[in-house]
Amino acid sequence: MNKKEFMEKLDNALTGIPRDEKKEVMRDYEEHFSIGLEKGRTEEEIAKSLGDPASIAKSIKAEYSITRAKKEPSIKNIFRATIAVAGLGVFNLIFVLIPLIIAVELLFVAYIVAAVFIAVPFLMLVYPASVTILSGDTPIWMVGVGLHIIGDILLVVLLYVTKGFYKLIIAYLQMNVKIIKGE
């Protein structure tokens, strides 16, 4: 592979990152080639010692997607970052995607529980028969209001947990990029 081929491959593989960022990356490798040539190496030698442009592009994209998810927190950005990190290799896939899916599922279930609790008094108004079994000796309205309050508290706690969880995912993704990718 000569310089032109290397740069083209890198250029093509660096999708989804801003133009400025890409220009900067390309500049670094241009510089690397020109210094190598000055030192009397051939383009092929330099390209070979640089390694595979596709895997270089992958790690740059992963780094970028994490930075972005940090700066502009959103579900879409965190999802992108996760996919990018998971794409670095099978090892990352196992250690990133699976724990994340489990955690998101747990969080999702907790939100549903909170929503059901909050809805209980309203459900009781609509279907009075549905809760008689639960109440026992306690006045039925107390059970309803009690569950509703528990649901509210749970919801507030969950909102905090979600926020913390977001930060945790970012830190976790960063750790994955740092430790696992090393080629």
């Binding site: 690397h32 640089l50 740059i60 990029v177």
Partner: peptide
Amino acid sequence: ISEGTIYPLLRRLTK
């Protein structure tokens, strides 16, 4: 090492 990996590393540590 694959010398190309040094640049992503430098970018991250600079950021």
